[in-house]
């Protein structure tokens, strides 16, 4: 009888975020990345907590929720495999501004934010390339927010 295959290991280089990035950054960051698995209902981050990691979703589905006083919480976006959880970890003060909850079994790789920032600071070329990959995420979220404000399904 053969042993069961080892659980698959997630590699940063396989994530869509790093697709086409030259310079070997994902390979070097792999050492400071932690693999995590979340069950349905688990919180990945909570509003107000320190944004101490850059989270890359590989599988599953994560709901980004806004908590409003005296109102039910609202999901404003869901993220799936190939998407990243934002940029709060990059900007001071690094703080999550919303809740993120797994709505399907979810697997992530999470990079320690302090180490990631240090790597990007000390290797500006890598930092620039990294920002070129992060900026489209920011721009896309901004576009979607604008469209949401326009209320596409308005009557």
């Amino acid at each position: 009888m053969t042993a069961p295959p080892p659980a698959s290991v997630l590699r940063l280089a396989d994530h869509k975020f790093f697709e086409g990035m030259i310079g070997g950054l994902p390979e070097r960051l792999q050492a400071v990345a932690t693999e995590r698995a979340y069950s349905v209902g688990d919180m990945l981050v909570r509003e107000g907590d320190v944004a101490d990691r850059f989270i890359l979703v590989f599988e599953g589905k994560v709901a980004l929720e806004i908590v409003l006083p005296d109102r039910p919480r609202v999901t404003i976006q869901t993220l799936g495999g190939g998407e990243v959880l934002g940029w709060s970890w990059l900007l001071p003060p690094p703080q999550w501004w919303l809740d993120a909850r797994a709505v399907k079994r979810t697997r992530t790789l999470e990079i320690n934010a302090a180490k990631l920032r240090a790597t990007l600071d000390s290797h500006p070329e890598d930092g620039y390339r990294f920002l070129l990959h992060l900026f489209p995420v920011v721009a896309q979220r901004l576009d979607h927010t604008r469209l949401q404000l326009m209320d596409l399904h308005g009557r």
């Binding site: 039910p72 919480r73 869901t78 979607h144 596409l152």
Partner: peptide, 17 residues
């Protein structure tokens, strides 16, 4: 859907996304 409560386990976001 553009927005949902916790009872919704489907996707949230615009069709363009």
């Amino acid at each position: 859907v553009d927005a949902a409560g916790r009872e919704w386990y489907g996707d949230v976001g615009l069709v363009t996304a």
